[in-house]
Structures are given as structure tokens and as C-alpha cells.
């Protein structure tokens, strides 16, 4: 992983390891609930989430180069980001994650663009290209005033854009490469940056309640409820067919192709990400990490045919001997409906 300076961590706080950062600074999470100075960071974190949930980008106290007159300002930038994640985790509300991640991605974009466009400072350009390579596996090479990337990488990211300007015909293309300005380069990865940040939040462990943060958490729950759609999950349980498939895999037994297809499409549709699902398959007798990732990405529609596959119907699963119906199944026609009712 990248080694970052304090100012770089302030610009790209999602690259910092939360636990290590706190340890380095000599603090524990609990102190943030009580220490009056540290509480300033909590307030800032709360503000950061509120701004994001309103669909805006939070304005940092650091300047465009990531500099600040005082060290503690930089520190508070990082703290507030890490605490924002803690607060979101404590609310248990997943609706906040997406908005927060997107807003933070937009914020980071500003710095990435500045770093890429910094003609005089090669190390800044290197850092930005390294981040893009490490996170998204896109190799960007600087050529004069432009950044060049392989056409196939460009297409994978640009196809979701609707503006005509993003069509390949409206770019300079030469020898299998697309030429981009710094702002376009960064714009290209906005969505992925957002996804990266949200997967970091989803994967962070949920802490137990920290005394002193209750009010902030409650306030966020209220905000998030206003954003929640009308479907709620009444039981967090998986349907019997899915539980059975997971069981089989955990025992290291063989799950037929159709069973893997069902499990993967089910979990993907539930919003799980490919890196979250992949480990489930590692006990399988024929496990191959590369193939598994490949197949999952394919099902998720993130690669290849770009068709997103959905979970098969109960009827189909019955014919494949994958259905283990119980009365909780309640006449549903697709496992996706298990345990859901309209509110």
C-alpha cells in the first residue's frame, strides 16, 4: 500500500488505515465521546455526513494543495472522516453510506485533479496515478500535457456517461490509447471512487456504542429515515435455499454450477459486492480465485457481456433441486422476496 504524508492523508483519508492512524496519534475511539477537543472532530464528522446526505460536497479546511497552516487542522480532516464512518456504522442505516461515499469521492476528485495537473511536481502526479492504479487497476501514463489510458479501460468507464462529449469518437485516440486532460481523467473514475469508499464503509466492523456520541447517532438516524425507501426487511434471514447453499460451501462440499449461480445472483442483488462474496467459494473443492472473481464480475455485469443476471425463480430452483421450502417462504415466487413485506 501507499505510504502517505499527513497532508496526503487529509486529502485522501479513505486511504488511511483507521485503527493505525488513531494508534499513531495516541488516541482511542472512546475518547472521542468525552474529550472536549476531540469532540470538535465529532461535530465536524456529523457536519460532513449532513452535507453529503443533502447531496453536496463538504468544504474542507485545507486548501487545494492539501495544505493548512496548523497541523491539527490536517489531523482533524482525517479524524472527521474516520469518525463519520464510525457514526454511520453506529446508525446501522445503509442509506447514508451511498450518499456519503459519493460526496467524499467528489471531494477527493478535486485533489486528484489538482495533483495530476501539477506540471511542476512529479511526485504529486505519481501519487495520483498510483492511487488510480492501486484502486482501479487503470494504468495512466503522462504524455506531455495529457494522460493516456488504454481504449478498453476508457470504454469500460465511459459507457455509463450520457454526454456526447464522452463518446470515443470525440476523444483523441492513437495507437490503442485515449488522450485525456487531468479533469477528464478524474471524472472517468468518479463512480468507482464512490464504490471504493462505500465498500470500505460496508466492510468496516461495527463498533459498540461510544458514550457521548448517542445524540449525534440519533440525529443521523432521523435524517436517514427520511431517505429510506418504502421496502424494509422484516427478517434479516436468508431463504432456506440460500442457507442450504452456504452450508454446502462451508462444509467444503461441491455445490453444482446452478447452485453457485443462484447464490451469487442472490447476494449480488442484495447489494453485496464481488469482493464480499468471493470468499464464500474458497472452500469449494475446485476453488480457483481468479476464475471465481471473473465469474462473479460477469454475473454482476461489471465485466464482459454487461448483462446483470438476476436470481432464478423458485419454480426454476425447484426443478434444479435447489429449493428447500419452509412455511416462511410464504408463496413467494422468487427468493429475493423472502422475508420482505410492504410497509
Amino acid at each position: 500500500m501507499l505510504v502517505l504524508g499527513q497532508d496526503e492523508k487529509a486529502k485522501y483519508p479513505f486511504l488511511a488505515d483507521a485503527g493505525e492512524y488513531l494508534k499513531d496519534k495516541g488516541f482511542s475511539l472512546v475518547q472521542f465521546g468525552s474529550d472536549p477537543v476531540l469532540k470538535l472532530s465529532v461535530e465536524k464528522a456529523l457536519h460532513r455526513i449532513k452535507v453529503a446526505s443533502a447531496g453536496e460536497v463538504y468544504k474542507s479546511d485545507i486548501d487545494k494543495d492539501g495544505q493548512a497552516s496548523k497541523d491539527y487542522v490536517l489531523e482533524r480532516e482525517v479524524f472527521s472522516f474516520l469518525l463519520a464512518i464510525v457514526l454511520i456504522k453506529l446508525t446501522g442505516m445503509s442509506t447514508l453510506i451511498k450518499r456519503f461515499a459519493l460526496a467524499e469521492a467528489r471531494r477527493a476528485e478535486i485533489y486528484l485533479e489538482k495533483d495530476l495537473g501539477n506540471a511542476s511536481n512529479k511526485s504529486k502526479i505519481d501519487l495520483a496515478t498510483r492511487i488510480i492504479y492501486d484502486l482501479f487497476n487503470i494504468e495512466i501514463i503522462k504524455e506531455n500535457d495529457f494522460f493516456v489510458i488504454p481504449v478498453s479501460d476508457y470504454l469500460k468507464h465511459s459507457v455509463t456517461f450520457h454526454e456526447r462529449e464522452w463518446k470515443l469518437i470525440n476523444r483523441h485516440v492513437e495507437n490503442g490509447k485515449v488522450f485525456l486532460t487531468p479533469d477528464k481523467t478524474v471524472r472517468l473514475i468518479r463512480k468507482e471512487l464512490g464504490n471504493y469508499i462505500s465498500s470500505k464503509i460496508i466492510n468496516a466492523p461495527k463498533p459498540s456504542m461510544i458514550p457521548g456520541l448517542e445524540n449525534a447517532v440519533n440525529e443521523l438516524i432521523l435524517i436517514s429515515k427520511k431517505l429510506t425507501p418504502t421496502y424494509t426487511i422484516t427478517t434479516g434471514e436468508y431463504p432456506p435455499c440460500i442457507k442450504h447453499a452456504i452450508d454446502v460451501l462451508e462444509k467444503g462440499e461441491n455445490l453444482p454450477h446452478s447452485g453457485r449461480f443462484m447464490l451469487a445472483t442472490f447476494l449480488l442483488s442484495k447489494g453485496q459486492t464481488v469482493p464480499q462474496i468471493a470468499p464464500l467459494f474458497k472452500n469449494a473443492p475446485d476453488y480457483n480465485p481468479r476464475v471465481t472473481l471473473y465469474q462473479l464480475n460477469h454475473l454482476a455485469g461489471t465485466s464482459g457481456s454487461a448483462t446483470k443476471y438476476s436470481c432464478p425463480s423458485c419454480e426454476k430452483l425447484k426443478t434444479q433441486d435447489l429449493c428447500f421450502i419452509t412455511k416462511e417462504c410464504n408463496d413467494i415466487i422468487n427468493p429475493m422476496q423472502f422475508g420482505k413485506k410492504r410497509t
Binding site: P150, S152, K167, I169, V173, S303, G304
Partner: peptide
């Protein structure tokens, strides 16, 4: 480099080759 790209990406490539959608 295009072996793994999907249908939507190929359609962009087609527009490029046919000179379609230029501004």
C-alpha cells in the same frame, strides 16, 4: 485489449469506427 469488453463498450467502438456521434 478488447477481448473482455462487453456489448455496450463494443457499440462505442462501432460508433468510433463508423464516425458516428461526433460533435
Amino acid at each position: 485489449q478488447f477481448q473482455e469488453i462487453g456489448s455496450k463498450e463494443r457499440s462505442e467502438l462501432v460508433d468510433y469506427i463508423m464516425f458516428r456521434g461526433a460533435i
